[in-house]
Design a protein around this nucleic acid. Sequence first.
DNA 1: TTTTTGTCTTTTATCCACAATAGACAGTTT
DNA 2: AAACTGTCTATTGTGGATAAAAGACAAAAA
Lengths: 292, 292
Amino acid sequence: MAKQNTVFKDAFNRCLKLLAETATLPSEPELGTTLGVSRTTIRAILTRMEELQLIAWDKRTKVVLRQPKPEDYFPVAETDSLSDIIERSFMRRILAGGAEPGMQINELELARDIGTGTTSVREFLIRFSRFGLIEKRPNSHWILKGFTREFALELTEVREMFELRSAASFVALPPDHPAWGDLDRIEALHHEILADIDNRYKEFSELDERFHLLVHTSSSNRFIVDFYDIITIVFHYHYQWNKANARERNARALEEHLDYIAALRSGDPARVEIACRAHLKSARETLLQSIQ
Amino acid sequence: MAKQNTVFKDAFNRCLKLLAETATLPSEPELGTTLGVSRTTIRAILTRMEELQLIAWDKRTKVVLRQPKPEDYFPVAETDSLSDIIERSFMRRILAGGAEPGMQINELELARDIGTGTTSVREFLIRFSRFGLIEKRPNSHWILKGFTREFALELTEVREMFELRSAASFVALPPDHPAWGDLDRIEALHHEILADIDNRYKEFSELDERFHLLVHTSSSNRFIVDFYDIITIVFHYHYQWNKANARERNARALEEHLDYIAALRSGDPARVEIACRAHLKSARETLLQSIQ
DNA sequence: TTTTTGTCTTTTATCCACAATAGACAGTTT
DNA sequence: AAACTGTCTATTGTGGATAAAAGACAAAAA
């Protein structure tokens, strides 16, 4: 097989949800914009919906005939893009058993393991190498540098430099900048989650990412913003395997965020620096604790 | 053709130079270590040398029969790795005419233009994307973000943060650290070039890279060191197309480096910061001048 | 005139094949 | 015993083929 049709399957599933809301579907270009795919894909979706007798389609008229049943959807597993699959598979491998630093990584073996071609694995490794966890020996294998204590320290060192700088420029944003509105919404969510922390503490991870990304974005520096990808992926997988005391850790981090947000609102650079440093320090400690 | 044999050709050329120095070549593993290639490649080289009647080869004995002639060498153009060729070709394209920011980049067109397969171009673009000059739209084209004023400002902002931090940690290196010896050699080269600046000012670019890389390396932070790749490539191509007042600019930069080096030796953090900032400021100005 | 659709072309994502290169192992030489 | 060579296998780098997806353009409809 050449290209996977995950874009089609995923968009088809999302389009099924739209059927519940209206009696007729809009025009092809409009659907394309809504779902974020091209007209070619939209037409493939409409064709399949017609085959499944979900709609009656004739040129501009697309009448909904019946509501979708569970079996109309494609299995969620089939809608993941290949690179996501490779990423998950790879991370499981290096975070799970026996991933010693210095270990060799074999493109062919990885590809066979995941059940995919070598090209995709290779491209993934090239993209992934910017995270500093692996390194290429040309004409030869890749080397796993490992999720070590040094890695975590180097990562947090840069993170702290970047975030302090970003936080300082956040304070200087004009009062009508949209970031302040985003900050309002994020703060509100903090209060909501804290109010029901026992049930909702798992939502912290995503909120944390949203908040810090907002801060980093205000630096208006592509290198700083791009670097946040590394933080995101590290913390994302970190949260998946370090679940000890998650409730308490997250509650404390939420409180720190609120301090930090209040400092940003105060407009006082010194106060921002103190709150930012305090939070970053405890984030670093959490990360370090999970290593070894 | 599948894989290019540039490794073989390049190692063959380098091996020809060894012939001038000895009457007999060493063992295969030893040659491999010297040239940095595997025994397979060494044996291919020896086979060809035998065919060309350059050596008499029988097991361990490899007697030099004659000195290599110019026509024994492979053309230098054939020893460049494919990714180097693609890089040069791409940079010429985006720095030369009509490379407007926002322009689309087409893998297929690039590949046809360079005379190579799409896979190699694609991999190059993925690797290159970490420099922040291009951006991928999945399932669609790449976008050229362009070598703009913003790019230069964002780049230098991060560079300054990283270099100030690195310079501070350089000062703290123990007196027996090898970096001090490297610094001695680099300083000596500065004096040599300055003494004959009219003829040797072109050597600055390479020396500049060596010096700053040494400073960055002392941070012991892979993200800081890796970031220097971006600086390197930007300045490398920058020097190629901005040759106005090169002699004066380089002379001034060399003087600034000497100040900076003296500050590093003084062990005085405040002095280091002043010298480092002064040099980075003028480096930034030089870069900005060359844009538009 | 503006938007939509039908049709067609171009480009990307992915697998596969094959030469170049690396690397492993056993037998041979020093 | 240690190092080297002969031989063989495994892996990487690269071009080519093909389905999926994007997108261009003219004709049709609003």
